[in-house]
Every structure is written in C-alpha cells, then in structure tokens.
Write a protein that binds this DNA or RNA. Structure first.
Lengths: 300, 300
DNA sequence: TCAACTTATACTTTTTAGGCATAAATAGAA
DNA sequence: TTCTATTTATGCCTAAAAAGTATAAGTTGA
C-alpha cells in the first residue's frame, strides 16, 4: 500500500466511476483499475462492489475512504510543518540569560521575534554567567546572554548591548546625582557585590576604579542576585555598583547614580554553539542582529 | 513521498547510520541513500546532517520522525480495521422489529451476537410491519423482524419463530385457564386490536376463528402498540388476542389464556435486502440461523 | 438484437527502484 | 605525515513496477 494507491482509491471513491476518476487523476483507466485491484489484493478486502454498470463502496471501502482522507490530510500538514521547521519558522529556542537582561534586551527582542516569527516559542532560563557555558555545551539551552566572555572553541559570542554602571545607594545616603563626582567619595562605605567566582565584572570594575582613586573597597556582603543586592542596599547594609538597567527593575527605595564620567561599561553578549545549525537559532540571531539595542531606546 | 520512503527514513532515523539501516531494511546502502535524498528533495528539507562520519537528525527530521512513526502505526490500525469490517467482525447493524420481538427473539439473538462478534454494534428501531419494507428499501435499516410476509423481489424473508396466540382478558373476567374452551365463549365481549391496515394478522386470525365459531367480533378500540392494548384490557375496556410472548412483557393485571387448541400461529420472520452484501449482515444472519428459537426456550 | 457504455485483460513502453562497483571524504592509527 | 578503515555519495546497469494502448467482455436500455 502506498500513498499513490490511497489517492487513486479516494478518486474512485468520490467519483464511483473508474473512467471519470481516471481522467481526474490523469492516468489511463486500466492503470487505475489495476492499482485498485492491487490495493484490494494486498488488504484482502473488497473495497468496491462493481458490476459492468455500477460502482459502489463496500462498508470496508466506506471506512477506508474516511480514514484515508484523514491520513492524507494529516500527511499534508506534516509536510508543511516539516518545511516550516526547516525554515526556522516554527520551533522552540531555549534562552539562558542573567536576571538583568530582563530589564534591557529581552523584552524588545521577544517582541521582534514574535513579530517576525509568530510560531517560534521561547523558553527563558535565568542563569548565572558561570552556568551558561556548561548549559550550552550540554544542549540544555540554545543561546544565551552573558556579561563576561570566555573565548571558547565551540562557541561564538557577539556583543549586543553596552551600558554604563550606576552606583547604588540607600535613599538616606548623603551622595546624590548632583554632588557625585567620583567613587573616592564612598571609599569608606561597605560594598555588596556578587561573589567573585560567579561574576567577575563588578569586582574587576570596582577594583580598577578604586585603584585609580587610591583606595581598596570593603566588601561586606555577597549575593548572586541583583534583586537581593538592591534589597540589602535599601536596608542600609551597604552600597553597590550595578548596570544602570536595574534602575527599571523594581520599586525599591534606592538611588541609582549613573557613573557617566568613567569609561567602564558592562557588555551584554549573545552566545551560541558555533556548529548549531538549528534554523530557529539562525532566525533568532537574525532578529537580534536587526535590532539596535542602543542605550537610548532601552533606558528611557 | 510514499510509505516506503517514510519507512526507510525511520530506519535511518533510528540507526543514525545509513549502512546499518540499509542492512535492517534489506536494501543496499546506495539505494537507501538515494531514497532519503529523494525524500529530502521532494520536501525541500534537510532531514539529516551528515558528514562522512556522523549522521544526525535536523530539527525538521526530528519532527518528521515522530510524526511518521505515528502515521505509519495509524495506517496499520486502519488496515486492520478495514479487514475486520470486511470480515463482518466490526460494524453496525440496524434492526427493525415489532415491539413484541423484544419479548421473544431479540434478547437471545443479541446475546449470541455479542458472544460471537463482540465488535458488532446494534441499533434497534421498534417499528410496525407496515414501515419495515419501506425502511429496508430506503436503507434506513439492514434487517428486520416482521409478522406478516409480503413476498418482494428485492427482499428475502425467513421464518425464525412461531408462537401460539393468547386471549387477553381483564383479571375480573369470568373466563380463566380452566374453563376456557373456545372463542365462542367471548362472542359478546368487545375487542381491542391493532388497526387492520397496520397489521392484519390479528384481524385475519380473529375473523377466521370467529367465522369458524359462527359469530362476528365487535371491535371497539384500536391501537398500534401492544402495551397500549394491554393497558386498555387491564382497565376493562375490552379483550384482545395477542401473541403469547407478550405475557412476559409487563406486570399488567390481565390474564393470558393460551389458545393451544387452535391451529393458528403467529410467525416472526427475519427479512433483509436480497442483494445486501454487508458482511455484518451476513454474520448476523449466520448467528440468527445458529439459534434455535424454540417456544420452549423462549417462553419459560 | 444492437448500440452504448464501463470495467477488465493482454501486451508494450516508460519510469522507478535496487544492485554493484567505486569515488570521495574523514578520523584515527602507524 | 601517511596510510587504513570507515562511511556516505555517485555512476551505471538490471530488474521491477507502473502506465499507456488496444481490445475483450459484460450489462443496460433503446
């Protein structure tokens, strides 16, 4: 039994006339008769009752006709969806990202993705930089946003977004936007940062600036998550340095003082497996390239 | 695309190795390679990523693999069920019958059918003799039980059950099993019967016997349905004559006096379209032939 | 009884699938 | 680095299957 025979069978079943059906199917009548005979022989089932004048479906033929119709239309659907997947228009992409990306690149990116590829589903996993590489290599995610780059033979990364740092202070702190000039002003404050091993950017930045300003910061608390750090600052347990985009993340009572006058910026890079040919990933990368993640657009 | 190609595709998809798959599929490796290429070309979709060393499914191939598996197993199922229908082991048979048959042949027949052909469904329609012929010819039913035979070119009928008549009397009536001898004893009673046009057996029977006994019955009520007639008798509105099997039909307060001493019997025949080749019907007829609808078994 | 119509069969041609030999590419061993 | 083993792809030929043409055979209705 093959699809051709089923199609022929449906042709005869709908015409109930071999000659007419053969015309519609663009084959000769004897060829059609023989294919039907063959199908009947293979199944061991009489599908049509025919005399020299009339053709009608047997109950088994009736059943097969309904089912064959269904299965052929299913098959069309499968073909079509297979093609969509091939073109990367349908499927899922699993994205790893630091918590902060939720306040910057992710919303516009998902909007654009939805616009151009409405049938691509996304699966977002918030994860620390330290987990991203492993998750990619284990195929647990397909693409990620990451702050720090570790060049890797099997991965490609590309900076998509740069943003300045902000000094995070409790509301009661004497420093404010107007009187802030340099980090030296808070050299006696306690600092709260992510642990060095999970994300070195803050440490390195802080240490670099402090060094420039001639002091060594006193780190008193550590936490992996931005929201936790903000909460600790709010409760007067210390001050911090974070990417400015966290400003839009919550309604905590802390001050964000953008450090415009220092050259350091935090990069957000997109990273994926170099050899990943998944068309959904390719489309995801295209969309992300097409977007201009300028500070202006994201931070207003 | 045909089933062969899908089967080959599934073979490669499960082995992820063309040479091994070709062995399992009992064809040469180049033939397999070419069939897969052909499938890919027809779909316009790369199904496998292959270098000279490794073969793996693309996302589209992954999808197709799942779907193809489903559709091929569906197809197996369809083949199987088509064969069952061909053998008359699956399907539905629509049965027309007089109300009285529910109290005689139908229960043992349905039990036997269930036993031998558990996948045949039945659809019972109670109908008057007068509707049966038309319903059969309109293909509204496939087989029927009928009391009166009207020989018909397109129908075949066969007597399956004979039963004696009973005189139906209200409980208060002076005649009883012991003192009943002949219908002449009730020649002055009022009779309740089905209308002549819908079922002549009762009329004809009654008239024949009465004629023999030398009187003309007084028919005062008519009703098509046995239960109605019984109710009217119960309420003392007259007496009736009905097949003895109604005795087991209800708990109405009426007396059934079997008229053993008269030769007349009512026949119940099975009737179907002579040219109906529906295998379910054939099996139904076989089962019904295999049963012995003797009075003894049914009326105890 | 014959003409018209419809499906089936016989035979031939065309198309497609499959087999064999081998090329091409690559990983891993020597 | 070179060679060998392994694996998929390609070229070419053969075999099988499908489709075409002509026509037989059976049936209906004029």
């Amino acid at each position: 039994m093959d699809f051709r025979q089923l199609t022929y069978f449906l042709g005869v079943a709908s015409e109930l006339h071999f000659s007419k059906a053969s015309e519609k199917l663009f084959i000769a009548q004897p060829a059609l008769s023989r294919q039907i005979q063959q199908l009947e022989k293979e199944l061991g089932v009489l599908l049509f009752e025919r005399d020299k004048r009339n053709v009608k479906l047997t109950p088994a033929g009736e059943y097969l006709s309904n089912e064959a119709q269904k299965i052929l239309s299913q098959l069309d659907n499968i073909k079509h969806r297979t093609q969509l997947i091939h073109n990367g228009e349908e499927g899922e992409i699993r994205i790893g990202h630091p918590g902060s990306a939720i306040y910057s690149v992710i919303p516009p990116l998902l909007s654009a993705l939805k616009l151009f590829f409405p049938n691509i589903k996304t699966n977002l996993s918030e994860m620390l930089d330290s987990s991203v590489i492993e998750a990619l290599k284990k195929h647990e995610i397909d693409v990620a946003f990451i702050r720090e780059l570790h060049p890797d033979k099997y991965l490609t990364a590309k900076v998509v977004f740069r943003e300045p740092f902000a000094l995070i202070l409790p509301e009661s702190h004497p420093i404010n936007e107007n009187n802030f000039e340099s980090l030296a002003q808070v050299k006696n404050d306690n600092f709260i940062l992510p642990p060095r091993n999970s994300s070195s950017v803050y440490h390195d930045l802080l240490l670099r600036i402090c060094e420039r300003e001639g002091f060594l910061p006193n780190i008193v608390h550590e936490s992996n998550y931005g929201a936790t750090i903000l909460k600790l600052v709010e409760h007067n347990l210390g001050i911090s340095v974070m990417p400015i985009s966290y400003k839009f993340s919550s309604a905590m009572k802390v001050k964000f003082i953008e450090m415009k006058n220092i050259p350091e910026r935090t990069n957000l890079s997109i990273i994926w497996r170099k050899d990943d040919t998944n068309p959904v990933l390719q489309n995801f990368l295209k969309v992300s390239e097409s977007l201009d993640f300028s500070d202006a657009r994201l931070l207003k």
